[in-house]
Design a protein around this nucleic acid. Structure first.
Lengths: 191, 191
DNA sequence: GTCTATATGTGGATAGAC
DNA sequence: GTCTATCCACATATAGAC
């Protein structure tokens, strides 16, 4: 693999594990098996490399989500598939974690991929809900955009609760809770 | 105010703003207007001081939540009051933010207040939901503990979405979405 | 109790040889 | 393109004077 790619991948991993402030150039170089000069040859510095890593992580996350949301089944089933997808819960969300970091939030180049990912995700889930409503699967009443934001927030908050408890259980509870509430949107059978 | 208290308060603020990794002893001392020797006289070091600060923040957060959850009104109204409570959304959650930090999660003394806070909060909201169900206000069906976890997760995730967007709007959307879904639990009028 | 001095490592980067 | 040497500031403390 090319040196740039190894640097980007190492940075993706370290940002996930340790956040932006907690990730040093030296650690990146060591994990990538690359010398100092080499890193600064390919990238301007830590922010530049981090921006590249975040763009790539954002792409990957969108692809994984789209796989479930564009899958087969009713609107409810597609959202369920998204929520129940296999996750390394205790590692947290690679993208969501960045929103806690003041240096990421303060730097437009670093915040952009994070913002775009969640904008896209909320919009995409809102679409699915709107489709379910148009198909008569869901009762009207719940706003698609608001409901979508709640769904995404449950996942992000679930990560927080799980890490706080050092257990995946709160994440699973939150997801079950969300699915139970979403089931209330289903139109009465035979309607 | 006593020196210890000024140190603890400064640490609370800095942990909130910059997280555990991002908070240096020097910054704490400067904000507290206290010299180095003084800090190390009163506390063993950064972890010790951070533990004291987190315990205090946890207490404060529980008190604020309990105020709403023990207030007047139906179960739905009390959860609504909790969700709609005035918040400095873009600052994030003082406690939830700590769950992202690997050093906090790895240190039992630092993680304990975080875990206990969310355990308590989920349990407390589950109680309110169970009361609403027992009073016939809510239809049975949704599990109180799962639903409570979802409610707490919406708030924590809402913070993440808001900071990612650098706007309070996604937080408000998520809360509105959650309230819309919770409304589906209400027993049919006149039942 | 509080202050200043000192110590050791790391963060983040530049310079210049190969 | 990659390596080593070097740089300055900061992180996190300890030592000992006052």
């Amino acid at each position: 693999m090319a040196t740039q790619d190894r640097l980007i991948e190492s940075t993706q991993e370290l940002l996930w594990e340790r956040g932006y402030v907690g990730t040093s150039p030296k650690a990146i170089q060591q994990r990538a098996g690359v010398g100092q000069g080499s890193m600064y040859h390919h990238f301007d510095g830590k922010p530049d490399l981090a921006a590249a890593a975040l763009r790539r992580s954002a792409e990957e996350m969108r692809a994984v989500a789209e796989e479930r949301l564009a899958g087969p089944g009713t609107a409810y089933q597609r959202i369920e598939a998204y929520l129940l997808r296999e996750r390394e819960v205790l590692r947290g969300c690679r993208i969501g974690r960045m929103a806690q970091d003041p240096e990421v939030v303060a730097d437009p180049r670093l915040r952009a991929p994070v913002e775009e990912t969640f904008d896209w995700l909320r919009g995409r889930i809102a679409e699915v809900i709107a489709e379910g409503r148009a198909a008569g699967e869901f009762v009207p009443g719940a706003d698609p955009a608001d409901t979508a934001a709640a769904v995404v927030a449950v996942v992000q908050g679930g990560y927080v609760l799980a890490r706080a408890a050092d257990s995946v259980e709160p994440f699973r509870q939150a997801v079950r809770g969300a699915l139970g509430l979403l089931a209330g949107l289903n139109a009465p059978a035979g309607a």
